[in-house]
Write a protein that binds this DNA or RNA. Structure first.
Lengths: 136, 136
DNA sequence: TCATTACCCATGGAATTACTAGGTAAAACC
DNA sequence: GGTTTTACCTAGTAATTCCATGGGTAATGA
């Protein structure tokens, strides 16, 4: 599976923030409950999003998280790449695993690279605003 | 990751058989050594391919495996679906996990379905004969 | 000062992946 | 008929990843 719960939760939360629209900060607890996601688990995801500058975070009462940009300025690809640490369909083409000794003669490699590009383009072509439109 | 070593090995082995062309049966041991794959591990993969009728198997001396059809009659998709047990990018859309309580209101679901279709079409459009052409 | 919030670090159970080990059954050769 | 060569079957296992959980620290506002 190419996208785990981590990435899917991140997307859901981003859509959830977009749905609420406003400038106000929403505490983690509220989002976790609304979305039915483990609060502690979501914490680590929010920290990732926050460090990358995808969301703004404020401590203390009245604090929480909020979006940094407009929903149409977040691509699904950027969020998944961040939370999943990449989007490659096979380990052959992931950067860490540059160790495939057969890379030079592998006759499947061009296929994997083409697939990766296709998936990447697909996700880069969808924004949080697009996902929001799907909701009823 | 969407495709594990199991599926990748299966593809390599099928290409390897196609490369040798002939009608003769090739023992597992020979293929495993030529491809540098664990013999025992490859065994389980070959059994899967054999049961599905992708390859012919013959016991005893002079036996082994060989392709059942022409290389251009095997799509990459059919091999991966068999060995990987499906090709879905997220668990949401896999058949076993029909349990997502949010399926009805999930605003990401159409995206996952579209992605699955795209990946499926991609792999169904490539055959073992195509992969063979890539080799130098 | 205290409640409320985000942040940080370590741990753990469950599942999956990639093998490994050891035996059984069938076919060919002597 | 016995031996070798092959495929087939069942089980186990080490390592990794996934999906959290637990407990504490730091910042902010009332």
């Amino acid at each position: 599976m190419i996208v785990s719960t981590k990435g899917r939760y991140a997307l859901r939360v981003m859509v959830s923030f977009a749905q609420r629209g406003g400038e106000e900060y929403i505490p983690l607890k509220e989002i976790a409950e609304a979305e039915g996601i483990s609060q502690k688990y979501l914490e680590s995801i929010m920290t990732t999003l926050s460090k990358a500058g995808f969301v703004d975070a404020v401590h203390g009462k009245g604090g929480g998280y909020r979006l940094n940009r407009k929903p149409e300025e977040y691509t699904v690809g950027s969020i998944l790449k961040l939370t999943e640490g990449g989007l490659t369909a096979v380990s052959c083409t992931s950067q860490g695993a540059s160790a495939c000794s057969r890379a030079e003669c592998c006759n499947a490699l061009p296929m994997w690279e083409k697939l990766d590009k296709m998936i990447n383009d697909f996700f880069e072509g969808i924004t949080i605003a697009d996902l929001l439109k799907e909701s009823k």
